[in-house]
């Protein structure tokens, strides 16, 4: 399944926030969406799920315009890990994961044994079976993100959207959640801030700035120190140690403040 945007333009409060963006997810691979704060990354994700109206352009799922699909039909194909941590009074982890089955049942249909089996397997896949009885409010940030992924797996969608899933997570959980997503084999679009994480876990990367895509292609090619220096306006250098490499930043903005 492929999610694609063509000439996607979004206006919020009279301001063009996303300007003529073209984006293609990669079947079974991870596409990273990167860029400075306020460049429109999250808005792109929101417009892909229909939370924000599109001014012009199209979003297609396997070539079908999403506007011809119902919210429910889209939800059967695309799942989202939202940026904001949800606050749920009293729902347990098992109940949250089971809710992932909602798009597959009509309002009057109760969840059956099949739904519970799928949800239980999803929770097992992310290694959180032991959390099933916990309340959502009792989970750590890392656990919440994993349960979110489990809910998306239970949703049975083929496309997974993640909006800054590594926010507030320490290094270990940042890697854990991205490794989990990568191993899932789902077609994934992930908004990230951390360039080093993107370099490790994305197959391809799109770099945004000021509402437009500046650069898009294989991770190795796009995450080039010269390109990054230009977009983030800070000196970027790649350090290599054996089989690992990392970006180092500094000494400061490469443009003198005016």
């Amino acid at each position: 399944m492929e999610l694609a945007a063509r000439s996607l333009t979004v206006e919020l409060g009279g301001r063009v926030v996303v300007d003529c963006v073209d984006l293609d997810t990669l079947e079974g691979a991870v596409l990273g969406l990167l860029g400075p704060n306020g460049c429109g990354k999250s808005t792109v994700v929101r417009s892909l799920t229909g939370s924000v109206p599109i001014r012009s352009g199209t979003v297609t799922l396997d070539g079908i315009d999403v506007r011809s699909l119902t919210t429910r039909e889209i939800a059967q194909r695309v799942a989202l890990v939202p940026q904001d941590a949800m606050t749920v009074p009293g729902l347990s982890v098992a109940e949250v994961v089971l809710l992932g089955r909602t798009p597959h049942r009509r309002d009057h249909q109760s969840f059956g044994a099949e739904d519970r089996r799928i949800a239980a397997d999803a929770l097992d896949t992310v290694g959180c079976t032991h959390l099933a009885q916990r309340r959502w409010t009792q989970l750590s940030g890392g656990e919440r993100q994993r349960v979110h992924v489990a809910r998306c797996l239970a949703q049975g969608a083929e496309v997974l959207l993640l909006d800054e899933p590594t926010n507030h997570l320490d290094v270990r959980y940042q890697h854990e959640i991205l490794a989990l997503v990568r191993h899932s084999g789902l077609t994934t679009l992930v908004v990230l801030h951390d360039l080093n994480l993107a370099a490790q876990y994305c197959d391809a990367v799109a770099l945004m700035s000021a509402g437009a895509i500046r650069c898009c292609g294989p991770t190795e090619a796009v995450l080039d120190p010269a390109v990054l220096t230009e977009i983030y306006e800070i000196d970027v250098k790649r350090l290599v140690d054996g089989d690992r490499s990392a970006f180092a930043f500094g000494p400061g903005p490469n443009r003198a403040p005016t």
């Binding site: 109940e95 949800a119 239980a120 290694g127 890697h175 854990e176």
Partner: peptide, 29 residues
């Protein structure tokens, strides 16, 4: 990442029986 991931149960549904997993989930519900 994989070795630690495996130790926390990532991607190892066959480690426990599928029935156990479902029974535990139902008990949690």
């Amino acid at each position: 990442v994989s070795p630690r991931a495996a130790s926390t149960g990532l991607g190892s549904p066959e480690a426990r029986g599928a029935e156990d997993v479902l029974a535990g989930f139902d008990a949690a519900l």
